[in-house]
């Protein structure tokens, strides 16, 4: 197993997508009743949560609520309510094309760059410190074949590329890094953070351990306040959807880009926050140290760095497809009801 000691390139486990059937049902209804042939991009919301089981990663999930409400449905409940610990919002954009040809003709690299540019600008103008959810964005391209009730789609999770790549100094389960006292204090602080509706869905944060070995979780923007206090130990934390013991998950990439760009740190201590049964699990959570060699002139860069992030389908660069004829096709529904 690599990455436990010595220097190696920091490798990240890609984000994985998961689409609830309800998303496609609502998209179909919007397409038929509201959008028609208008194929302008629409803003959608994805949801994720920290990994909550040692054997499966969490996913970026799309639900019916990811889409705007169909105009025919009136509701007093807001489309996306904040503060749900199992649903941290991730802003996304959907390009749904009218034909399979235009789906394949989309300029994927260009679309990815456009989303990466938004992330880069939010880092530069400080918005990413105020609302850290914008550090993770996603892009979905799709073609909804409403004659056959099949959906072709492809996700991208834009990540700004550090060049040269960050190297890993060490990476260990958090429980092996902290003393029992710190670990207890840290677990309690995490469980408070995760159970308050004000912070439960804030995916990036700062872990502060003071000289009395007392741990607190602070907002990312508080780094500027704490960095001067020499007797504090600081770690950059994020909700890690990944379960792997030797790799951090995808959201760390843009966090490192922010740290590198705004604060120009050479060495970054980070914490991949993971849970078991909904509570902080420091055996599963990882603490690591990465070294960043700041790319030339990053702080003052006007153009957006290179970005990667198209999701692979079983290791291949191909879109996914799902057929929902069984639950959507009226003739089949009539047959199964007979």
């Amino acid at each position: 197993m690599e990455g436990n000691s010595g220097k190696s390139i920091l490798q990240f486990a890609p984000f994985q997508s998961s689409v609830d059937e309800g998303f496609w049902h609502r998209l179909s209804s919007l397409k038929l009743n509201k959008f028609g042939i208008d194929d302008s991009p629409i803003l959608i919301t994805g949801f994720y949560a920290p990994c909550s089981h040692s054997q499966v990663s969490n996913h970026l999930t799309l639900l019916a609520e990811s889409l705007p409400l169909d105009s025919s449905e009136e509701s007093s409940v807001p489309a996306v309510s904040r503060g749900n610990r199992n649903r941290c919002s991730v802003p996304g954009i959907l390009y749904n094309t009218n034909t399979v040809e235009s789906f394949h003709a989309l300029d994927k690299q260009g679309l990815l760059k456009a989303e990466a540019k938004k992330i880069w600008e939010d880092i530069q103008n400080g918005k990413a410190l105020e609302d850290t959810a914008v550090l993770s964005r996603f892009l979905l391209i799709s073609f909804a074949d409403l004659k056959k009730w099949s959906f072709h789609y492809w996700f991208a999770f834009p990540a700004l590329v550090l060049d040269p790549p960050a190297t890993l100094v060490n990476l260990k389960p958090a429980s092996q890094v902290f003393s029992v006292e710190v670990a207890e204090s840290l677990s309690a602080a995490f469980n408070d953070w995760r159970s308050s509706s004000l912070t439960a869905d804030v995916p990036f944060f700062l872990v502060v351990i003071d000289s009395n070995l007392h741990a607190t979780i602070k907002h990312l923007k508080d780094w500027e306040t704490y960095q001067s206090a020499a007797d504090h130990k600081l770690l950059f934390g994020f909700y890690d959807p990944c379960h792997l013991p030797n790799n951090p998950g995808w959201p760390l990439r843009n966090l490192l880009a922010l740290i590198c760009s705004r604060w120009d740190l050479k060495s970054v201590r980070f914490l991949c926050y993971r849970e078991t049964r909904g509570f902080a699990d420091l055996g599963l959570s990882l603490v690591g140290e990465a070294q960043i060699t700041a790319p030339q002139g990053w702080g003052t860069l006007h153009s957006t760095p290179n970005a990667v992030g198209w999701e692979l389908n079983k290791g291949r660069k191909v879109p996914r497809c799902i057929s929902l004829a069984k639950s959507m096709d009226p003739t089949r529904l009539a047959v199964s009801a007979a």
Binding site: A13, V308, W310, K317
Partner: peptide, 12 residues
């Protein structure tokens, strides 16, 4: 021509 940057992508 999509890029995946194999150096930092953990390929499953």
């Amino acid at each position: 021509n999509i890029e995946i940057d194999p150096g930092t992508y953990l390929v499953a």
